[in-house]
Design a protein around this nucleic acid. Structure first.
Lengths: 244, 244
DNA sequence: GCACAGAACTTGTTCAAACAAGCTAGGGAC
DNA sequence: GTCCCTAGCTTGTTTGAACAAGTTCTGTGC
C-alpha cells in the first residue's frame, strides 16, 4: 500500500497526463485539494512536491501552481539500466557478452571503485542491440565482490541490473555520470558498424549501492543518432531519460 | 534572510565538504540535530531533504543517514548559461555574434517555442571561446517578444542570460535538454576548427520563463574533449553540470 | 559460540495550527 | 478611463505531537 501522498500524486499526475489539467492551467489550491481528499495540507504539499520534482508543475509563492508539461520524465532508473529503459519504451533489446575476464584493478579503476590498486575486478565487454541494431558498446568493470554473481549470468542476459536485483537483492541507488562525445576507435567502429573517427555519444558512470559502496564503473558508447539523453530541469529538480 | 532549514542545510553541507563528516559516516539523527539547533524535527527533515536532493546524503527508513559524496553538483543554472558555469569554474569565457537576423518561424521552431508558423523570431549564430579556444557553436532562436532586448546586447556579450536578467528581470526557470552526438558539418568544422565528420557533443534545449512561457530554442555544439556533462543522481533527485 | 527474540532507536507519514511572504483582483481616488 | 492600494487568497515556513515501519544492538537461551 502506497502512502497517502503518493496516491494523491498519482491522481494529479493522471489528470495532467490525461489532459483534464492542460498545460498552463492552474492546479487547485492546497486548501481545496486538502478538503477534497480529506487530508491535512502538509500531505497535499508532499504530493505536489513529487510532481514538482518530476517537472510537471511549477510554483511561486503567492500564486497558484501551474501545469508546466505533460511528459513525465522516467527519472533515474534509466541511467543505470539500458534494458529497463528500452523495454519501457517498447523496444526489443538484446545483449551479448563479447569478452569477460578477471584482472587486477589499475590505478584509474581503483580510484573510481574505491579499491586498492591490484584488487581483483571483473572486466566485461558487452554489445547491446535495439530492435536488432547494434547501438551500444559497454566496457564495464565490476568490483571483485560482485564478480561471482556477474559471472553466473548467461552471456545473452538482457538486463544485468534486473538479474542482480533478483539473484542478490542488489539495488543500484546512486550514480555519477559523465557524458561527452568521442571519435570511434577501431574496435568501436567494427562492433558498432560505424566509420572510424565518426561521432559516438559516451557515457561514463559509477554506480553505487544504497549503502554508498561503489559496485561498477562503465564506459558506454552509443552510436550517434540512436539514443538521445533528455534532461528536464525545473528550478531545483531534474530528471533524465534517454530518448529515441 | 534565508529560512531556517536552508541555513541548517548550509551548515551540514559545509561539514560534509570540509571533511568533518567523511564519506560513509552517519549523519547525527534527526532528534539530535533538532535539539542541537533548537528547532522541530520537521525543520531538520527539510534541511536534510535539500542535501538528499543534492546527492550528498542517502537515507533508508530505520537506519541512520549516510554521507554519500563530497562533490556538490551545481544543479541547474549551468544548463542555461555556459558563461555562468565557465566563470564559476575559473575559466575566461568570451562570445562573438557571427550572424543575427529576424525571420519568420518555421514549423519546427513554432512547435518548440509554442508560436504559430510565421510568427517573428530572432535567429542568432554565436561562437564561444573558453580561455581563447573556440569550443561552442550556438544556433539560438529567440521568441519575437525577446528580440528587441537581445538585439540591444553588444556583439561580444559574455553572458546573455545575465544580461537579460539585468536589463529585463528575465529569469530562465525551466528547460528541456536533448543531448546526443553528431558529426561536424562544414560550417561547424570551419568555425570550431575540427575535421568535418568528426565528433561533436550536441545539446538542444528549450528554455522557459518562470511563468512557463518558452523564450528560446537553441542547438549548441561543443567541440569533443572540451566539455563533459556530469550528472549525479540519487534515488529521485538529479543534478547536472558541465565539467572540463 | 551461535541464533533468535526483543528493546531501543531511527526514519517515514500524517495531523492541526499559526504566522510570514507574495500575488491578484477589485474598489476607490483622480 | 486610468492608476494605485488594499483585502483576501495562495504558497512558504515552522511547531509539536503521534504512530508506523524498518534497522541495529543487546541479551538470553541453547
Amino acid at each position: 500500500m502506497h502512502p497517502r501522498y503518493a496516491r494523491i500524486a498519482d491522481e494529479l499526475r493522471a489528470a495532467i497526463l490525461g489532459g483534464e489539467l492542460p498545460v498552463g492551467a492552474p492546479l487547485p489550491s492546497e486548501t481545496v485539494l486538502a478538503a477534497r481528499h480529506g487530508v491535512a495540507r502538509g500531505t497535499i504539499r508532499q504530493a505536489v512536491a513529487v510532481l514538482t520534482a518530476e517537472g510537471l508543475v511549477g510554483s511561486r509563492q503567492g500564486a497558484r501552481r501551474i501545469v508546466l508539461g505533460r511528459e513525465r520524465s522516467q527519472n533515474f532508473a534509466v541511467l543505470h539500466s539500458f534494458a529497463e529503459w528500452a523495454r519501457a519504451a517498447g523496444h526489443e533489446v538484446t545483449g551479448q557478452v563479447i569478452d569477460q575476464r578477471r584482472r587486477a584493478a589499475d590505478a584509474a579503476e581503483a580510484a573510481r571503485l574505491g579499491l586498492a590498486v591490484g584488487d581483483p575486478v571483473l572486466r566485461v565487454l558487452r554489445l547491446r542491440r535495439l530492435d536488432g541494431v547494434a547501438v551500444l558498446l559497454e566496457r564495464t568493470v565490476y568490483a571483485g565482490w560482485l564478480a561471482p554473481a556477474v559471472e553466473r549470468l548467461p552471456a545473452d542476459c538482457d538486463s544485468v541490473t534486473r538479474a542482480l536485483y533478483e539473484s542478490r537483492g542488489l539495488v543500484f541507488a546512486y550514480g555519477e555520470h559523465l557524458i561527452d562525445a568521442v571519435a570511434a576507435g577501431t574496435e568501436d567502429a567494427r562492433l558498432l558498424g560505424v566509420r572510424r573517427g565518426g561521432p559516438l555519444l559516451r557515457q561514463r558512470r559509477v554506480t553505487t549501492t544504497r549503502e554508498g559502496r561503489p559496485a561498477e564503473w562503465s564506459d558506454d558508447r552509443y552510436r550517434a543518432g540512436s539514443v538521445t539523453f533528455a534532461i528536464r530541469n525545473a528550478a531545483g529538480a531534474l530528471a533524465v531519460h534517454p530518448q529515441d
